[in-house]
Design a protein around this nucleic acid. Structure first.
Lengths: 165, 165
DNA sequence: GTAGGTCTTCTTGACGTCGAGATAATCCGT
DNA sequence: ACGGATTATCTCGACGTCAAGAAGACCTAC
């Protein structure tokens, strides 16, 4: 089955036969698939009245385990947004009663963000819905292919996740 | 080499052992990698004074081949943005002299967006830079692995690219 | 102890995107 | 021809993000 990237690559080979556009076969698919996934996630979360950005923050806290609290800085590395964005997200989640800000007892510069009970329930319910949807998308692949794909992607993400940048 | 998604999945297995979170091994990596790629692209394009969104529109037109023109609607399907966003993008690119709007001779509702000579040069130069950067990222994989990865990703993107949605 | 550098979080203003709706032209069945 | 449905593009207001920088707290070497 052909996709948009096949058409895109064919067009480049026609227009710029002097260039080797093979990298696009992988990385353009990654970017486009992520965009499609964003849209699908937005739809799936709307059943739980959650936005994708809310889900990202709430589940990061949920994963931390009891007492479900992390610093804004820790949330940054998990969600890949800037600090200004995170401040804003925490503000809005706190206003909705899904998280609360506490002073960090061991560092007076710092803050701890803690999930409320309602925040935890919302995160748990939305996660179940997301997994169901993702399984449907991945049904195009056999279990072995999914493992293979995850392994290849890890080789690309690891350098980003393990350097200072 | 471990990445953030390995840590994320391990955390879920600890906190929610009742759930099968295997889908995240693939799809969370796709989303996170796309985010890293966005940042890297922004950096690469800044050498050419181009924003990623400008690159996306200019290269779509460049790929179309002479006379380098497409309708706003055709640009939508290639760039995965909404129509309001595309109108705005065309406005700003036209103001910079990189594209121009022409009436569609065969449909008076329609418009054709055409690349100017400068727009074409900018697109060509930025593409070369992007490919160089992407090759560096993909150097983590052998040629055979890159082909394998592209094929697996195509199976996931094709359903999105080939349905009305 | 104290000065300089480094963290951590928050503030601010500009920017780009989205979603919903408006407008205008085209298509199609009768 | 005609009316209704459809299509193409644009308008507008709300929203979320970013980048840069500010303020305060911490740390280390002297």
């Amino acid at each position: 089955m052909e996709d948009e990237v096949d058409r895109l690559v064919a067009a480049w080979r026609r227009e710029r036969p002097d260039l080797d556009v093979e990298p696009l076969e992988v990385l353009s698919r990654v970017s486009r698939l992520a965009r499609h996934l964003d849209r699908a996630r937005r739809l799936a979360f709307s059943e739980h009245s959650l936005e994708p950005w809310e889900f990202d923050v709430l589940t990061a806290l949920r994963r931390a385990g009891a007492p479900y609290q992390l610093s804004p800085g820790q949330l940054l590395t998990q969600t890949l947004v800037t600090s200004g964005t995170m401040t804003n997200r925490i503000d809005r989640l706190a206003q909705k009663g899904l998280v609360e800000r506490l002073p960090d007892p061991s560092d007076r510069r710092g803050v701890l963000v803690r999930l409320t009970d309602e925040g935890r329930d919302r995160a748990d319910r939305a996660l179940a819905g997301l997994l169901e949807q993702e399984r449907a998308i991945l049904s195009q692949l056999s279990p072995a292919q999914r493992t293979e794909l995850a392994g290849l992607l890890r080789r690309l993400t690891a350098p980003f996740d393990n350097v200072p940048g």
